[in-house]
């Protein structure tokens, strides 16, 4: 069982994430968008969305710090375990709570604003459940360590070595298996999230427009070689109705 969960599943997840993203990038450029709902509602979005996104960026940075950088390195530069732990708790806790608060505002907005809820697909709803679960469970692992105090679990001796061992294709299954349940469930939900990632609107994160910082302001492009050519119609990810409202089709 441990082999399946911590030795096989991660690679399945990576295969789906990479393969799915490539597939979607090639075949569904038209569906690759944030599907912003700011046109419908701006006030709550302007509160919730930045909190959520910036919180998430901090959370990602925290994961990188905790998982990729070995404990030996931080000890070597003189960062004590307690100091590290306090930092992770403070920064991680703030970022996590912010992310959770942000997404709660966004979910509230999505449910309570009529047009936004109308524009929510089933795909979105599934994605929201998984995303929120991953955030809540992640926060739980962090907060749990507060109450456990000194006896809290040091994930840098279990989860982190396992995470790094995945990259050299020799997964350290026993290390991960030794981690407590809360970490197990958070990791599993996280893997689920990354598995559905390419098939949801979350893909917009992969095309974060950092090249905007470097490109020229004015973009010239030559016309298609065949003027007026009709491009073969590709299937969009979510079918775009040509009727006024699809509600009539029920």
């Amino acid at each position: 069982m441990d082999l399946l969960l911590w030795g096989v599943l991660p690679y399945v997840m990576v295969a789906i994430l990479i393969g799915g993203s490539i597939w979607r990038y090639r075949y569904d450029q038209f569906g690759w968008t944030t599907r912003s709902s700011q046109l419908y509602e701006s006030r709550l979005l302007r509160i919730g969305s930045p909190i959520f996104h910036f919180g998430l960026l901090a959370v990602i940075a925290g994961h990188f710090f905790g998982l990729v950088i070995p404990m030996a390195w931080t000890l070597a530069v003189g960062m004590s375990q307690d100091f590290y732990h306090l930092n992770a708790l403070l920064v991680g806790g703030v970022a996590g709570v912010g992310t959770l608060g942000g997404i709660l505002i966004l979910i509230y907005r999505r449910r309570k604003t009529g047009p936004v809820f109308m524009a929510t697909t089933r795909n979105d709803k599934v994605m929201y459940v998984v995303l929120t679960a991953a955030i809540v469970l992640g926060l739980w692992t962090t907060l749990a360590s507060v109450f456990e105090g000194e006896h809290g679990h040091n994930y840098r001796e279990t989860v982190a070595p396992w995470f790094r061992s995945l990259f050299i294709l020799q997964p350290d299954i026993t290390a991960m298996a030794a981690a407590p349940f809360s970490f197990h469930i958070h990791t599993l939900v996280g893997m689920l999230l990354f598995s559905i990632w390419p098939f949801t609107r979350l893909v917009h994160a992969f095309t974060a427009p950092l090249h905007y910082l470097f490109r020229p302001y004015i973009v010239y492009r030559t016309r298609d070689k065949v003027p007026g050519a009709v491009r073969p119609i590709r299937r969009g990810w979510a079918p775009i109705g040509t009727e006024d409202r699809t509600r009539d089709k029920k």
């Binding site: 090249h211 905007y212 302001y217 973009v219 030559t222």
Partner: peptide
């Protein structure tokens, strides 16, 4: 065009 982060808006050369 200058505001577009993706660079999706373009001016045709021709």
């Amino acid at each position: 065009m200058a505001s577009c982060p993706s660079g999706a808006i373009y001016k045709r050369v021709e």
